[in-house]
Computed example of a mutant assay.
Amino acid sequence: MPDPVKYNKKFDQLSDEEKELLDIAKNSIADFVEHSPSVSDVNYATRNAHAKTYGVAKGDFLISKNIPGQFQKFFDREKYALTIRFSNAHLKINHHKKDIPAYGFSVQIKEENGDLIANYPLVNFPLFPINSVSTFLKLFTSVNRFFIKKWSSFSLVSQILKVIPSTFTGSFLKNLFKLWSKRNDFLLSFDYHSVGAYRLGENMIKIKLRPKSVDRNYGKKLEVKEALENYLRNSDFTAEVLIQICYDLENQPVNRLNVEWKKSPFIKIGEVKIDQNNLLDPRSCENELLSFNPFESKPFFQPVGKIQTLRKEAYKVSMQTRLKINKLLKYK
Rank of each mutant, 00 (worst) to 15 (best):
T135S: 12
S297G: 11
I245T: 15
K26M: 11
E313F: 08
I207S: 05
Y231C: 08
A314P: 00
E250D: 15
S181D: 08
Y315H: 14
T141I: 09
K316P: 02
R233Q: 05
R77N: 13
I164H: 07
K225P: 00
R210K: 14
E202M: 04
R311K: 05
I117K: 12
G114E: 09
K6M: 06
A25S: 11
I24W: 03
N131L: 09
Y44C: 01
S40D: 05
Q159Y: 11
Q302H: 00
R256Y: 12
A239H: 08
K19Q: 13
Y192K: 05
Y315W: 10
A57Q: 02
D3A: 12
F140G: 02
N293M: 09
M1W: 03
E17I: 12
E288N: 11
L127Y: 10
R47V: 01
S264W: 10
T169K: 10
E34M: 09
N27C: 03
D31H: 05
F154A: 13
K220A: 13
L14I: 06
F128N: 06
V42H: 05
E250C: 07
K327P: 00
P165E: 02
V254C: 13
I245G: 14
K58E: 14
H50K: 04
I148E: 01
P299I: 09
S40M: 06
K150R: 14
A118I: 06
D23F: 11
R85A: 08
K212I: 15
K212N: 11
